[in-house]
Structure formats: C-alpha cells, structure tokens
Amino acid sequence: MSQRVSIITPTFNSAQFISETILSVQNQTYPDWEMLIVDDASTDETVTIVKTFAEQDNRIRLYELDRNSGAGVARNQALEKATGRYIAFLDADDLWKPEKLEKQLAFLAQNKLPFTFSFYDCIDENGVPLQKRIKAPVRLRYRQLFFCNFIGNLTGLYDTDYFGKIPIASFRKRQDWIVWLTILKQIKTAQPVPESLAFYRIRKDSISASKGSLLKHNYRIYRDFHRKSSVVAFFCMIGFLFTQLLIKPRFIAKL
C-alpha cells in the first residue's frame, strides 16, 4: 500500500517565499511525497518560480486558477488531484524541518493513529527566529479545540484511509480549524508529536495579524459551521477569549 503524502499548498503572489517553502519539502528525509501547488491567479513571478521547480522534480505539480478565488478553492482543487494516502498542508510562506514527515508517519504507525500534528516555531517575515514555540496539549480533546485552534495548519497530517478526503470549507479564514474539528469530532482526542517540526512565518500583512479580524472569523465559525444561535455564539466567543487569554499562553514557550 502506498504511503505517499500529498502536500497541499495554495499560492497567491508568493514569489518572495515560495522557493524556500518548496526547498523545505525537497529536503524531507521521507521521500514519498507529492506537492500540489495551486496558484490563485498570482500577478508576480510565483508561477514562473514554481514551474522551474516542477520541471526539475516530478513530485511537484502546479495547477493554475483562471481567476482569484481564494485559498479554500485552491486547496480543494489540490485535494481533488491528491493521490497520496496522507494529506498535509503547507502554506506558501511556511517551512518544514527536514524530519517532519518521517517523524510524524512513524508516530502514527507506532501509536496506531489516523491523525497527528506537532509543535512549531515562529519566524518573522525575513526568516529570523522569534524565539517562540507554540505547543499544544499532549492529548487534545474536541472541547479544547472547540475554544482554541491548538493545531498549526502547517503541522497537521491525516490518513485518508480513515477519514476520506475532508473538503475545505468556503470560509475566508480558519479553514484549517474546521478540518481539525471535523477530525476530532470523530476520534475525540488527538496526540501531537511533542516537538517542533515546522516554522510558521508571521507577516505584517497577514490576516491572522489582525486580532479584530480573527474575532470576526471565529464568530462566523460558531454561527455558520457549528450552527449556533447568535446568543450561544456570543457565549462561545467568551469561552474563546478566556482560552486565548488564560490557557493558550501556557502553551507558548520562549526559546
């Protein structure tokens, strides 16, 4: 049975970072992967850069959207094309450490799990370490995830033999959180590889940098995905804020 990992990467005007991101995949100690890059109508040199890599490495495949449609559409197109047993996500500005896939797959096998994730470190826009590591509960429960997305998008890995391919929701943001909630609703708890296996790039222009925007998108998840009433969603947001202020900081370590 194939143990291939399908890596899903949407791009949009990612020329500044995409080469380093691809190289971090090519440097994996686990070789059986395919990288499905879907470009969301970039206007910079992203497509040219990716084509150069794809011409030299047939594990890298590029698809282009005719018009800018959002990361969710790009991810779903990649998901449709994926041939691997395992699905992983890596955004166009983030990086993996060389043993990321090898260690996660070994962890899944040893513990007979269909899903795992890991801790990750933060870097700035120029790749400079911010001396901050984001951890997670070593036995993450659905209720904990309901109030806080402890799982970094760049770290999750799931088995399609168990879950099938999980479609990406059409939300503008927090799409990964919905995938993880869908998974934990089935398996109840999840275990991370308890070490940092990736680098998350914090950019000044990222949506996640805006706290107000984050709150708006989270409220929509409670309303539209969980289908809570406006009153219940409001109280869910109080729980979310409580978790962000008092619980999540316990899982942020200075290096």
Results as ranks from 00 to 15, higher is better:
K165A: 08
N27D: 14
Y222K: 06
R174Q: 12
I22M: 12
K216V: 13
D224M: 03
P194E: 15
A54H: 04
E195R: 08
M1V: 13
S118F: 04
F225Q: 02
R133G: 00
L79E: 06
V5L: 09
K81E: 11
P167R: 11
V138H: 02
F163D: 02
L62W: 07
R223S: 06
F115P: 05
M1H: 10
D40H: 06
A106V: 15
P194V: 10
A71H: 10
N126M: 08
R172T: 14
K51Y: 00
F242P: 03
T46D: 02
L113W: 12
F242D: 04
L246P: 01
K81F: 10
S196G: 03
R67V: 09
G164V: 07
I202D: 01
F146N: 03
I238F: 04
I178P: 00
C148N: 14
K97G: 01
L36F: 05
I221C: 01
L140K: 05
F107N: 10
L79P: 07
S229P: 10
F251I: 13
Q244T: 07
G70A: 02
L65S: 03
T9S: 10
W180N: 07
N126G: 03
L101P: 07
K204F: 09
T46E: 00
L62S: 06
L108V: 08
D91H: 14
K100Q: 14
D159F: 08
L215P: 00
M35N: 07
Q244Y: 10
Y30I: 09
D44E: 02
K211R: 13
R250C: 09
S118N: 07
L108N: 08
W33T: 07
L246R: 13
T29D: 02
M1Q: 08
I168Q: 03
D121A: 08
F12L: 14
L181R: 07
Q77H: 11
I123A: 01
K185L: 00
D66Q: 12
I134P: 01
Q175D: 02
I134K: 09
Q186M: 11
F199G: 04
F235Q: 00
T189P: 00
T9F: 04
Y200L: 02
R223P: 02
Y63N: 06
V138P: 01
K173F: 15
S19G: 15
R201N: 05
L255T: 14
N218M: 14
F115K: 05
S118C: 10
F119I: 11
T182P: 01
L245F: 15
L245T: 12
L197P: 10
K112N: 14
S6N: 07
F234I: 07
